[in-house]
Amino acid sequence: MADAKVIPFGEDPRARRTARRPVNGTAVPLTPVPEARTGDRPRPAPPAARGGRSLDERLAGGLRFLRRRLTGEYEVDDFGYDEELTDQVLMSLLRPLAEKYFRVDVRGVENIPAEGGALVVANHSGTLPLDGLMLQTAIHDHHPAERHLRFLAADLVFVLPVVSALARKAGHTLACAEDAQQLLERGEVVGVMPEGFKGIGKPFADRYKLQRFGRGGFVSTALRAGVPIVPCSIVGAEEIYPMIGNARTLARVLGLPYFPLTPTFPWLGPVGALPLPTKWTIQFGEPIATDGYPPEAADDPMLMFNLTDQVRETIQHTLYKLLVQRRSVFF
């Protein structure tokens, strides 16, 4: 598979900062990317006026919630997704991280359809999959229809205790064609980061360089289900844990795909495990329709490669574009 055509910018951050001046005229036109709307669009208020209700009402609501939880009278779906727990607890825990810590700027969220299935394809980075959690929070809090993102996660997630239980409750499931297909056919918004461990565990020097997109299985799944593919670019996650080294032997002993060494971790212990407070931007691109193809197209490898490339290039172009616009890593 040929590498995507990308605009070569400087490799180091300093060069990138100076490149904010108009890009030279020979640049490839960035057609598939919608114009970035700079954040003065009124944001939909995060879930129905949390502070607006009186203390008593909130207390009563909290007690009703506690009653349901204690007696087990709540519903989970076949994948173990606990919508109530996600909305009331997990999202409330992630929201401050998204709004106060990483100050996520969400753009183009309306590219995700208000109803019906869609496949959100995003870049993966940051050593720990915080980008996935932030993407889920961003879509839930900013989409007018408050859509829930169902993430396809690596198998490692479901091997680990605690993490596996929480991931299932938050609506994540194993990244495999069967699960993805079933969720898409139910009309859910499914999120996938096709770079996988290659993307999240890449060294700091390779930041914002998209890795290979697996075998492009996500495209054929979307095609089979006839749902649009929404490319998504996340800027800011690369710098939360600058991975300057990889303790391969230790990783192999622990059964992990990589063991990150950052300027602070593991040297400073738990303090070093704090992510750096970078400024994030999550940009959703124009949806790529797949319902125009005949059903047998899902088995056409050339078409799959072309579509995979198209998605990959869109994300890569948008990444570079957002990087050019970015003032600094932290603001």
């Binding site: 076949d78 994948f79 173990g80 198998d155 479901f158 091997v159 596996s164 299932r168 499931t173 194993l174 495999c176 069967e178 699960d179 079933q182």
Partner: peptide, 11 residues
Amino acid sequence: PRDPAVFGEDT
């Protein structure tokens, strides 16, 4: 843990 979440007869 590495199995799909929902098994069909042919999985």
